[in-house]
Design a protein around this nucleic acid. Structure first.
Lengths: 189, 189
DNA sequence: GCATTAGCCTAAAGGATTTAGGAAATCGCC
DNA sequence: GGCGATTTCCTAAATCCTTTAGGCTAATGC
């Protein structure tokens, strides 16, 4: 009986591809087993549960996103950094909608702490370094940027902006302009 | 055999309560049947499918949200309107996390057109009336506000802001201040 | 009052998750 | 190289959710 060579890593990777193809919440242990041409129960040697699979995909996506963001940020500052950073999220979501959805999954505290989530927060702070905000304004700004990026990309991906009037690329540029202007001129309490 | 008095509306309402209690994606036709002490198959006289149930809950949530927003907006303008409007979303999400999640569900074009989604867009435009933006900037701003509200509330609800340093109420206030400042001074292209 | 309709039921098929236990392939150590 | 231990994959089975089909009974209308 030839072995399929499954590992948690390969399963996570294949699960991520599956998520991009059929949507994150259509990802199922059964579907993944079919993809490897293996019986369902076999996957339970590598996965604790269906939830575990989804978590692994989320962690993979967070890593990939963080890697891309780190690349994009290298050697940039100010608005240049802000734009590059923001585009990483938007582009990733367009290329890998399933993974992007996975990355939004709620993780329990312990898993979250071991994830690339911290890198994201650190990098957002790095972007803000060009804007000379001091604490606690920097934290407020980190949260604002996270909200805008997450919110915009999610709504755009979900078709929430469909009435095409100004196209979404135009809006995206103007939103980044607006955020840059806001960060350069952050209002005092 | 006494009848349970099921209707699509009652099912949607009970489904919404269930969503708030156990989470939107734990909402299941079976669980709903148990709640009414009725056999599962009975619900299929009132629902086309499990998906249909979820859609009905989403539509209910969108309506409730739009009603609350309309109330909040009455007699307000400028930053006052902006704050009240934003707080509707945030408060609703905290009171009804399951319904709020439901409201983000992706709807097909036809269903979306028949939903309260249009009212939300109209009300966002109404909020912006106090800031004298002209098209297409108004559309850009509508999308920005939608992104921030959706993004912030989702991240806060999902525990994305947990490191409590400045509490999230403080950040929320400062984000609204920042948006107000930005809208009053929207950057030219 | 009785025919019709609508609401709830039982039955059953199909698919997903998960656990238990077995057999074969691989690995590590002599 | 051989051989026991471990790992990987399998079959079998329980449980739960979805969905359809067809029947019985309560409500409704003439």
């Amino acid at each position: 009986m030839a072995r399929a060579g499954l590992t948690p890593e390969r399963l996570a990777r294949a699960g991520a591809e599956l998520a991009d193809e059929v949507g994150f919440d259509q990802v199922t242990v059964s579907a993944l087993a079919r993809r490897f041409d293996v019986k369902v129960a076999s996957l339970y040697s590598h996965l604790k549960s269906s939830q575990d699979l989804k978590t692994k995909i989320a962690l993979l996506a967070l890593e990939e996103l963080a890697d891309r963001a780190a690349d994009a940020l290298a050697g940039r500052a100010g608005k240049d950094a802000l734009t590059a950073f923001a585009n990483v999220y938007r582009d990733y979501a367009r290329e890998h909608p399933g993974r992007f959805t996975a990355a939004q999954m709620r993780l329990d505290a312990h898993t979250a702490a071991a994830s690339a989530g911290g890198r994201h927060a650190q990098m957002t702070r790095a972007v803000l370094r060009g804007y000379h905000l001091t604490e606690p304004d920097q934290t407020h700004a980190v949260r604002l940027l996270g909200s805008v990026f997450h919110g915009y990309v999610t709504l755009e991906l979900g078709g929430g902006f469909s009435h095409s009037s100004p196209d979404t690329q135009e809006t995206w540029s103007r939103v980044l302009d607006a955020l840059d202007a806001l960060l350069r001129n952050w209002p005092a309490p």
